[in-house]
């Protein structure tokens, strides 16, 4: 196996995570404006800033991929924001692999702990 530089991989993941996420967010905003709304809400509801507005709990994450495939603006934005959340998660995963390569058992355990806390917050809580 060729030697890989985990710091460099981490750096790439971080940067591309931000770029991909911002891309989806901007595309999503454009779609919301062009189609005058998204996911059954109109533009005014989506852009309102008081507590009765469209918030994350109203976006069904199980529809995330079908929403993106259907060019729904709100799901595009949601996808961009979730790419952002998953960026640090993949960084921790890269570190885990690197510690395993180094046979650094203590840090394998520690990064496993951090990774599971992240995954629990995302999928369980």
């Amino acid at each position: 196996m060729p030697k890989w530089d985990s710091d460099l991989v981490t750096s790439y993941i971080l940067r591309s995570g931000v770029v991909v996420s911002i891309f989806f967010i901007i595309a999503g905003l454009a779609l919301v404006v062009i189609r005058n709304g998204a996911a059954g809400y109109d533009l005014q509801q989506i852009a309102s800033l008081n507590s009765t507005t469209v918030t994350s709990s109203m976006i069904n994450l199980s529809d995330l991929f079908s929403g993106v495939a259907g060019f729904d603006g709100l799901y595009f934005i949601a996808f961009g924001l979730w790419v952002l959340i998953f960026t640090p998660v993949s960084v921790v995963a890269v570190s885990l692999v690197e510690f395993a390569n180094q046979k650094n058992l203590k840090y394998v355990v520690m990064s496993l702990y951090v990774l599971s806390i992240l995954l629990i917050s995302i999928f369980v809580l």
Partner: peptide, 14 residues
């Protein structure tokens, strides 16, 4: 924190 905030509805996408 963000993934918990998401489910609590604290994130307004716009």
């Amino acid at each position: 924190g963000s993934s918990i905030y998401w489910k609590l509805g604290y994130i307004q996408p716009f």
